[in-house]
Structures are given as structure tokens and as C-alpha cells.
């Protein structure tokens, strides 16, 4: 028995359209998977886009080595369940090869170092399109990002010379050596992503939900004290709080928020009433007002 109508989620339909365009216009696409909610949402959309066929491209995780253990466990389970191909490239290898230098001190993070590992992997596999979960609402510089964003031989973003994108038409033609970053959920907000996870009943790593954790406070933010990759001064006191994470990036630069939201519907409610932006808990963007723009020009996601 066919259903008559269904409620159109225009953001979902737009994202599926974009993902299909990638499969049609490029020879070697890849989906950049971090284990975070945005990339999990992308996987769900890709599954829907190609049903009943499998997703026609692999997933790739640039592993900083500083992930929350819950994320990695989740990643491996998802890949197995869906029968997907996963490529992992490690920031540690780039460090060992002397290509990047580990940061040191209180704010040390491997977040920036990912760029080199990513660009090397693109080169290694000759990927011509990398699908990412970035959203325009995350940050001011991202607000100007295109859906098909062309990067040059060095993986760099030239924000003053971007291609106009009109109507639904996505121009995936590139020159030799160029590649494209594709952002199917460009137009989604954090709330849209969470509402979709709720609507679709998508499983996500447990650290997104409120749990008891040993933490310490610095600069008005809450940091995990359960793993040694997060630098902590001896005088920074460890306390136990009910917290959850709104993003799950590199552990060393992802702060927690106090929360009692232990279920998806509670999380959606919390986000709806929230007065702090998602990236407010990312120390790497606070380095300067133009932090994100500078990193993007260098080839960051």
C-alpha cells in the first residue's frame, strides 16, 4: 500500500539532491567522516540518496588521535552495519614524518594539524570531491561558503574569487589539480540537525547526552579531565558535573556544557532555548575574530 503524501523536509531534499550531484559529477568522491553528529547526518542522507543501492563512495576519517573513545567505537560500528568502506589517516603519522609540529602549552590542539593530513590523503587517493558536514550557521566566514567550494592545488580557499551558485545548479567542473569541498547541509542550523536526528531516530555517540564526567574549569569553559590529551595545570581543580558535548571535535579543543539533557528530545529542547552558539565551546575559533577564515584559506575543512 503506497502512502499518499509525506511531509516534505526541504532541507533534507536539498541535501539529497546535492549528494546525488556529487556522485554524478565526480570520479572519486569521498565523505569526510569525523564521528560527529553532522557527519553522521550526512551518512544518513547519503543512504537515503542512493537506496536501494549502497553509497557509491568511501568514508574517510582524519584521526587526530585525540578523539573521544566513544566516537571511534561508534564510527567502527556504523561502518560495519552499513557495509561501507572506511579510510583512516592519522595526524600522528604526519607528526612522525616531520610534516607538522605538535603544539605545546595550555591551548595545544591537533585541530589545525589535521589540514596537512587531509591534503596528503586527498593527494594519495586523488579524491576530486570531499563531502563535509560544515554548516553556514556555524561561523561568520562559513556563512559565505559555497555548496561546491573549489580548492586549488594547495587545498586553499580563495574567498574573494568564489563561483556564484544560482538556482539549483551546481557546477562541478574543475581544472587539473583542483578539488571540490561539498557541503550538503550548508543551509542547516544546529537545531535543524538535532531535529532531524530526532525525526529519523538516528543513533549518535553517547557523549552528546548528559552524563557525569570529571571536568575542570578554565576561561569560563568546562574541560574534560578524564583524558590526558587535554592539558591541565596542577592548580586547575577537578570536579564532577553532569555535562554533555555539543560538538565532538578534537578532545583538546572541545569544551562541554552543563546539561541534564539525557535524551534526544531534551537535547532538541535545550538547543532551542540555548543562548550560546555551538562554536562558543570551541577554543580554536576564539583565538581571533578571523580565526576560522584564516584556517579555511589554508585548506581546513
Amino acid at each position: 500500500m503506497n502512502k499518499d503524501t509525506y511531509h516534505i523536509n526541504s532541507l533534507e531534499n536539498e541535501a539529497i539532491y546535492i549528494i546525488r550531484e556529487v556522485a554524478a559529477q565526480f570520479e572519486k568522491p569521498v565523505l569526510l567522516f569525523s564521528g560527529g553528529k553532522d557527519s553522521i547526518t550526512l551518512v544518513r542522507l547519503a543512504v537515503k540518496a542512493f537506496y536501494p543501492a549502497k553509497i557509491p563512495f568511501p568514508l574517510m576519517h582524519i584521526d587526530t588521535g585525540h578523539n573521544f573513545p566513544e566516537t571511534i567505537e561508534f564510527r567502527d560500528r556504523l561502518v560495519k552495519e552499513l557495509g561501507l568502506k572506511l579510510i583512516v589517516r592519522n595526524v600522528q603519522d604526519s607528526i612522525d614524518q616531520g610534516k607538522v609540529k605538535e603544539e605545546s602549552g595550555r591551548y595545544a590542539s591537533r585541530n589545525q594539524l589535521q589540514t596537512t593530513t587531509l591534503l596528503d590523503a586527498i593527494e594519495e587517493f586523488k579524491f576530486d570531491a570531499c563531502i563535509g558536514g560544515a554548516r553556514r550557521d556555524e561561523e561568520k566566514a562559513r556563512a559565505k561558503e559555497r555548496i561546491f567550494s573549489v580548492r586549488d592545488d594547495f587545498g586553499q580557499w580563495d574567498e574573494k574569487n568564489q563561483r556564484p551558485e544560482l538556482f539549483d545548479m551546481l557546477n562541478g567542473q574543475i581544472n587539473l589539480g583542483q578539488n571540490v569541498r561539498v557541503f550538503p547541509i550548508s543551509n542547516w542550523t544546529e537545531l535543524d540537525v538535532w531535529s532531524y536526528i530526532e525525526q529519523e531516530n538516528i543513533e549518535i555517540p553517547s557523549i552528546y547526552f548528559a552524563h557525569k564526567r570529571k571536568v575542570f574549569l578554565r576561561d569560563g569553559m568546562i574541560w574534560s579531565a578524564e583524558d590526558e590529551v587535554v592539558y591541565r595545570d596542577d592548580n586547575e581543580e577537578v570536579i564532577e558535573e553532569m555535562v554533555r558535548f555539543r560538538t565532538v571535535g578534537d578532545m583538546s579543543c572541545t569544551a562541554a556544557v552543563l546539561s541534564e539533557a539525557a535524551t534526544i528530545s531534551k537535547v532538541v529542547e535545550e538547543i532551542r532555548d540555548s543562548t550560546i552558539s555551538e562554536r562558543g565551546a570551541r577554543i580554536d575559533d576564539k583565538r581571533s575574530e578571523a580565526a576560522m577564515e584564516k584556517r579555511k584559506q589554508q585548506g581546513y575543512f
Binding site: N2, T5, E12, E14, Y17
Partner: peptide, 19 residues
């Protein structure tokens, strides 16, 4: 048939990405 993911529908509305 009109598919949206694994469900079949009678009608595909405007702006929907179907198979």
C-alpha cells in the same frame, strides 16, 4: 513506483528528491 528512501508513495510533490 515512486520511492523516497525505502517507502513507496503515490505522489511525488514539488521539490522532493525521489527515485
Amino acid at each position: 513506483d515512486i520511492y523516497f528512501y525505502d517507502e513507496k508513495y503515490q505522489t511525488a510533490s514539488r521539490r522532493s528528491s525521489v527515485t
